[in-house]
Design a protein around this nucleic acid. Sequence first.
DNA 1: GCCGTTTTCGGCCCGACTGTTTTCAGTCG
Length: 573
Amino acid sequence: MTIHNREIADLLHRMADLLDIDGADAFRIRAYRQAAQTVGGLSESLADRVQAGADLTELPHVGERMAEKIKRIVETGRLDQLDRLEEDLPAELSELMQISGLGPKRVKALHQDLGVDNAADLKRALEAHRVQDVSGFGKKTEQTLSERLADREQHEKRTPLMEAEEIAAPLARYLEDIDGVRALTIAGSYRRRKETVGDLDILVTAEDDSPVMDAFVDYEEVGEVVSHGDTRATVMLRSGMQVDLRLLPQAAYGAALHYFTGSKAHNIAVRRMGVERGLKINEYGVFRDDERISGGSEQDVYDAVGLPFIEPELREDRGEIDAAEAGRLPRLIALSDINGDLHSHTDATDGNESLEAMAEAAAARGYAYLAITDHSRHVTVANGLDPERLAEQLDEVDRLNDRLDGRIRLLKGIELDILEDGSLDLPDEILSRLDLRVCSVHYKFDLSREKQTERILKAMDNRHFNILAHPSGRLINERPPYDLDLERVIEGAVERGCHLELNAQPWRLDLNDADSRMAKQMGAKIAISTDAHSGANFDYMRFGIFQARRGWLEPDDVLNTRSLDELQALLKR
DNA sequence: GCCGTTTTCGGCCCGACTGTTTTCAGTCG
C-alpha cells in the first residue's frame, strides 16, 4: 500500500509535537513542522516521487536529513526517531496539543504529574479537579480547559467559506455601525478565500473613544468571551465559530492587514526578506533601527522588501514570492472574466427550475452561453434522461434558443455517468448531437487507485468525453476524495483534448486549489462550473473563482472565459 | 533540522493576553 502525503505529514507533525513536549531545540521542531507543511501541500504523490528516485531536497524546508527520513517513511511506513520518542511519550499527547490552551509544557506537566495521556484522561482529571493542583495550572485554567474540551467535542471541523460568510456578514455590519469605527476588514484565511475557515480575524480602526471592544463582546451571537483586552479580544460565537477582533491605529492598518491576512508561512518569508534589508516588519509597521518608516498600506510592506503587491489568495508560501521577485505573478481570473456556465440542471432531472427559468437566470448574469447538462439515465434517483427524453429536451432547447433571440445561447449538453467499466451511459448516436458532455463518477467510489484511474482514462477514450466533472468526488467535511492518480488523469485529458472541471459548489470546490494549479501547469484547461440546480445557484460561481485564484488560474486557463466560437473550437477533439 | 551571491556556522518573526506569578511563563496567532 502506498502511503499518502497526508500520512507522511501527520507523522512529521507528530514528531514535531513530541519533540516539543520533550523540550527539544525550538528550531529543530520548527523544521519538522515546516517540512510537514510542505509535504501536506504537495499535489503529486511523494511515494511516487521517492520510487522514481527524485531528489526530495528540492522541496522547500526539506534538507538531506529530512529527505532521508521521508524516504524511510515511504519505504517502511514508520519513522525510527518517532518510535524512540514514543517509548517515553505516548503518541496521543500530540492530540492533546490540539486543545486550545494546551501547549507542550502543560501537556508534559499533565503527563508527568497526573498520567494524562489523551483527551479522555484529561476529561477525568478535570472532573476530579486534580488539574488545578499541577504547578502552572489553577482553578481558572481548569475551568477554561473543561469548557474547551466540551466545545471541541461538538465542534472540531473547519467551517466552509460560504457558511463563514453567512456568520461574518451580520457581525461585520454590527461592528461597522458602532460609534467611531472607521475601517473594518476580515483578514486571515477568510480573506485568502480558503475553502474552509478555522476562525475569523477581524481588524478595525476607530476613534480613540470608540466603544468597539466592549460592543464586540456584547454582540448577541457571542456564546463565550475567551479574552477581552484594550486592543484585542476573542469570543466564541454560539455557532461555534471563534472570532478575534483587533483594534489598530490607522497608521498601522496596512501592516496589520498584511500580518493578519497571513498565511503565517508567507509572513515569515516576507519578514525574512525584511531582515535581510535591515528592516523589522510587524503588525505595527515597517521599522528601521526602531524608527517606523511606513506601514499605512499593504503596498508599503511589499514596497519595503522590493516586491509588487501579492493577492491574498496567493499568500501561501507556494512560490508566490519567487514569482513576485521575477515579475511573473499571474493575472488572476476574476468573476467578470466569466462568460458562461458549463454545468447546470433543470427540473427534467434533479434541478428545481424549468429550462426557460434557468436560461433567464443565466442571461440575467450577462452570460453569453449556458450549457444544460441534466443527468443521464444511470442516475435513476435523479430521474436521469434516456435517449428519448434527451432528444425531446434537445428539440426544446432549439425552440427556446429561437425565442431567446440571441440574449443568451443555450448549449446542448448532458452530465454522463462514467460506469464502472469506463463506458459512458448513453449511446454515441445521441451524444453526437450534443455541443458538450460533462462526465462524472457518481458511484463505486471505493475502487483501487489503479482501477479508478483506468476507469476514467478509458472513459476519456470515448471521443464524446469533454469535461471531467468534480474530479476528486470529495465533499468538504463529509466525504474524502476517492483514490485516484490525478496526475495521470490530467495527463490523459491533455493528450486526448479533454478538460477538467472546477466545480464551484461551496461543499465541493473540486478540483481544489493545489490540484487546479497542477492541472494548469500540465497544460490542461479548466471549466469553472456551478453545477446549478436552480437559477440562484449560478451565484456559486464566485466560490469557484476564489478557488481558481488560489490555484493561480488566469483567464486563459479557463474554458468559460472564452467567446462562444473559441469555446466550441476548444471542445472539438 | 534548514539554509546560504554577506555565511558550511550561526542564524532562524515577534507582540498580546491570561493566569499564576510576585516579575513572568505559557500559549496563541
